[in-house]
Write a protein that binds this DNA or RNA. Sequence first.
DNA 1: CGCGTTTGACCAGCGC
DNA 2: GCGCTGGTCAAACGCG
Length: 309
Amino acid sequence: MADWGLQAVIRPKEYDHQHLDHNDLFGSIDTKKEYDQALLFCYPHLFDNHHHHHDHVVTDELVDQLYKPVYQTIDHHHGFDPEIQQDQEQDIKNFCGSAPKTSQLAPKLKKRKNQQKRVVVQVTADGLSSDPWAWRKYGQKPIKGSIYPRSYYRCSTSKGCMARRQVEQSCTDSSIYILTYTADHNHSQPTRRNSLAGINRSNRVKAIPKSPTSGDCGKTVTMSKDSPFHSPTTLSVSSIDDEVLQHSNITHETTFYNKFDNNEGLAMMPAINDDDCMVFSDDFFDGLEDLGGYKMESSSTKQFPHVFC
DNA sequence: CGCGTTTGACCAGCGC
DNA sequence: GCGCTGGTCAAACGCG
């Protein structure tokens, strides 16, 4: 059975247009479930205890606008294989249905590198510390085609954890860092204290220099698909809960778009402003922090990158 | 002392 | 088969 690790990326619209060479590196998210997976992989705290679905109105035009370009990308770069999609659907169902068994968690040995599932996240320098997991650097290598080296991290929370993270600076936009997550955590999300204990030092070291040009777009996060989301603590795939929204005082400025996908849930996409950035109010992040025990860095305006476009 | 980064060496996948 | 490249290992070292 095919087990291709197609990647998907959510990135600012203008980024795609200006950095087409990077499209060769990444695929794109093609379903809302994959977006959920990406979110869950990187920000699991957003999903804890929120595993019921909600009805949200979304127009067909909006759905087409949000998702159509992604399918095109997949067709172009990876080819569209119904069997592959079926496998991916099954992976997601396994993930959604119940806590996975140990056998499901164990990565396949000798798996081809390009078949490994991975999640690609693009963040600004400020966003590098927004990861709740504790990572330990175990290698760094210069990458062909990039003037910046790639750093390799493994999860330091648990010795047996196979989760990996790669960090590289975009060669076309030095303010953007490309995070690639592979494998999955075999443990629950660390507590805030544990997480800080693991990242305090590395954060202070600032191994990756912050670009003087960064900061224009706040937290720019780019998500990708096909993550190995089999965290044993995960209850189900879900979207950010209405309770979160209410708790966060979401206003018209922080509208979420939602998309039904074959009765298997819906995605919630932050609104895109005129600058092609998702904008969240401070109240929103305060709410998330309260609900998930997760501290976002202080900033007057939080902006998440939006989906491909 | 524990935990982190750095860095050169080594290994394996992949294309030719 | 060979060479290139990416990913990992492990020793050395730094820091609190």
